[in-house]
Amino acid sequence: MAEIYDAIDMLSAEFSIVKLCEILGVSRSAYYAYSKGSTYQLSDQKSEVGQAVKEVFEEHKRRYGWRRIQAELASRGIQAGRHQIRSRMKDQNLIAIQPKSFVPKTTQSPPHLRRSPNLLLQKPNLPVAPNQVVVGDITYLPNEEEHYAKWLYLAIWLDLYSHRIVGWHLGRHMEESLVTEALKQVIRQRQPREGFIVHSDGGGQYGATGFRALLRSNGFRQSMTRKDNHYDNAHAESLFSRFKAELLDGGVFYGLQDAYDHTFEYIEGYYNTCRRHSSIAYLSPVEYERRFWENAIG
């Protein structure tokens, strides 16, 4: 740390100390204390919070910003405000992964596709409990594997109420079976009732004969985004933005098995069970569902 303070001294003739401290990730109070020949020491309480912040940050592999860290600390009985957490993060140069902003992509819909109406535009169709509506999408995953294509494909179904990923399937293609197999997982594990809404964009996989037959045989209702309005499926698409940032962080997978192993670990071992979601009171999807059913029964 002394080397950083000395560098600030050297550069202060050309640049402001405020800017130098900001760029180099040190607090001004610590720098000024060093300049006066004293050592800046955090109080015991702040040191403990700083250590706890670092532990949470590392446990969640750089995926948590101050809000989720605050919620996690509170669950452990540690109360800390926004400014304190942000200061402790800055002191330790803890910078969370930032996903790219959601940008809707254009789905190529076959011209002959009969598009289903968007049922989610009607308020009575919005979920008030888990297992009423799922939203789905497909994304590309970079693959660096000899003799195979450079892309793998992941289809997911997300419970719109709890934000739990309730079905997913990974493959080397993006044909109808990719989304069908993911939906079959939803059926096996969740056993949705008749009237269950299955929402997606207007991609050809969702309008295929076999997929629609699966919906009809289970009494499900199909819902699709409006033509050229891809914000209608923003929940699923923004999930993929977060997924790629937090899991891949600019990297690639090395084959289908590697992608499957890491995807399984992220979805089943982290996203559904541990990761706190701002839209559901900073709880994990599994915990949010547990509390819902506990209150419903109680």
Rank of each mutant, 00 (worst) to 15 (best):
A30W: 04
A74S: 14
Q132S: 00
L11E: 10
I95D: 08
A71Y: 11
H169E: 13
N143G: 12
Y148E: 14
G210S: 03
L154W: 02
G251L: 05
Q108Y: 07
S241N: 10
S35Y: 12
K244F: 04
F240I: 05
Y206T: 00
I97N: 09
V18T: 13
R86N: 12
K46Q: 14
A2Q: 15
L121K: 15
D201A: 05
I297D: 13
A33Y: 15
I165E: 02
L113E: 10
H147R: 11
A96G: 11
K36N: 15
S29G: 08
N131K: 07
I297A: 15
R88C: 14
V49H: 04
E237R: 12
R62P: 01
P99R: 02
A245R: 06
V128A: 08
D261H: 10
I280E: 01
D6S: 15
S177M: 05
Y32D: 06
E146N: 03
G207S: 09
K61T: 04
Q84T: 15
E237H: 12
Y288D: 00
A149Y: 09
R62E: 15
M10S: 15
L215C: 11
L73D: 11
V252L: 06
Y64W: 06
Y140W: 08
R276V: 14
S200H: 03
R76C: 12
M224I: 08
A149K: 13
R242W: 06
S162R: 00
Y34E: 08
P130C: 04
S241I: 00
Y231R: 14
E144G: 03
L154I: 04
M224S: 10
S16W: 03
F240G: 03
R275C: 03
L158Y: 00
Y161R: 00
H199G: 09
H262M: 07
F264A: 09
S27M: 14
Q185V: 12
Q189H: 07
S38E: 15
I85P: 05
L183P: 02
P130A: 04
G210P: 00
H277V: 11
T273V: 14
Q189S: 08
H169L: 09
Y288I: 02
G202T: 11
E22K: 13
E72W: 03
A96M: 09
W66L: 05
H262G: 01
S29M: 06
V198D: 00
L247H: 01
T263Y: 02
I138Y: 09
Q189I: 03
L158M: 14
A129P: 02
M89S: 01
Q222A: 08
D201G: 05
R242M: 11
S217Q: 15
K61V: 09
E175N: 07
L214T: 10
P117H: 01
T225Y: 06
A33Q: 15
N125Y: 13
Y32R: 10
G298F: 12
H147G: 08
G37P: 14
I97Q: 12
G167R: 00
Q98F: 01
G171D: 14
S12V: 04
V26Y: 00
D258G: 06
